[in-house]
């Protein structure tokens, strides 16, 4: 591949964990700081960039491809908050066709349209749907499209399980030029043992935490206004959390190939945490001793 223009970052994570919200706030924070940013939603739901562009209609790349007309960048992109260029790959209707191949085709098409040469971004963020379920969804971290991936996770077991699966994909592709891991974004953090679980997980897998994002009503409120927190509540503490996270991601060049846990190991690890949480909740031991 030719010399990459800008840093290309893929954001993965379990369905509904907060990928789109977090990615959009990072994009908004980076743009606010003066960077040129593109956010590409790699998801047939095509809702990744909603809060960056006030929920306005944006035709997806694959919608245009389906119609078979000649495609121009202007038709499939729109500038949102602070000039973030918003693009949605789109996909087939649920239950039909191959979404994995769709994402692959959309990204290829964007490259063919010289998106990066034209826009000259500092950062390109790929908001990739759900878990890595098949080869198609691993496309953004394969083939050198992105060089770094972040995973959004809460302290829930299934979210960490999805993160571990992503680690497996990175582990497989990184040696042949695929993306490496930038870190875990710990989302929906609440007081209590949640941080400790994620911290233990990153330690076990040889990775690190890029930032903690609290669970906050500001996020939901801003979303209802069709905005990011950065735009709707620029002075809030939550906005500063996203700014911190964006700064970290912008600077971080410490990329690793994770050591994913095996299935049995992961289950065993979860079980020990299950016991500890039970004890904590029931006041058997204090938090400090539990850690």
């Amino acid at each position: 591949m030719a010399e990459k223009i800008g840093k290309h970052i893929a954001i993965y994570g379990k369905g509904g964990i907060g990928k789109s919200t977090t990615t959009s706030n990072i994009s908004a924070a980076l743009a606010e700081a003066g960077y040129r940013v593109i956010q590409i939603g790699c998801d047939p739901k095509s809702d990744s960039t909603n809060t960056l562009r006030g929920n306005n209609y944006l035709p997806t790349v694959l919608d245009s491809l389906r119609e078979g007309n000649k495609i121009h960048l202007e038709d499939i992109s729109v500038k949102g908050f602070s000039g973030v260029l918003c693009i949605e790959s789109g996909g087939p209707v649920p239950g039909v066709g191959c979404a994995g191949r769709g994402i692959n085709a959309a990204v290829t098409l964007l490259q063919e349209l010289h998106l990066f040469e034209e826009f000259k971004p500092d950062f390109v963020l790929y908001d990739v749907l759900g878990d890595v379920v098949c080869g198609g969804f691993a496309v953004p971290i394969r083939d050198g499209i992105t060089d770094r991936a972040y995973v959004v996770s809460s302290s829930d077991f299934m979210a960490l399980y999805a993160a571990n699966n992503l680690f497996k994909a990175i582990n497989k592709y990184a040696p042949s030029g695929g993306a490496k891991l930038g870190g875990v974004i710990a989302n929906s953090m609440k007081p209590g043992y949640h941080r400790e679980i994620v911290e233990d997980f990153v330690e076990k897998t040889g990775t690190s935490i890029a930032g903690y994002v609290n669970r906050s009503i500001d996020v939901q409120q801003s979303e209802l206004y069709g905005k990011t927190v950065i735009e709707a509540k620029p002075k809030s503490a939550q906005a500063d959390i996203y700014r911190e996270l964006a700064k970290y991601i912008a600077r971080n060049d410490d990329l690793v190939i994770p050591n994913p846990m095996g299935v049995a190991e992961l289950k065993e690890w979860a079980r020990t945490w299950g016991d500890r949480i039970y004890d904590i909740e029931n006041g058997v031991v204090g938090l400090a001793e539990a850690i």
Binding site: L65, R66, G68, P92, V96, G97, R101, G102, A105
Partner: peptide, 10 residues
């Protein structure tokens, strides 16, 4: 073709 793979060929 590619688009039939993506959107289904039925």
């Amino acid at each position: 073709q590619d688009r039939h793979v993506i959107f289904g060929g039925a």
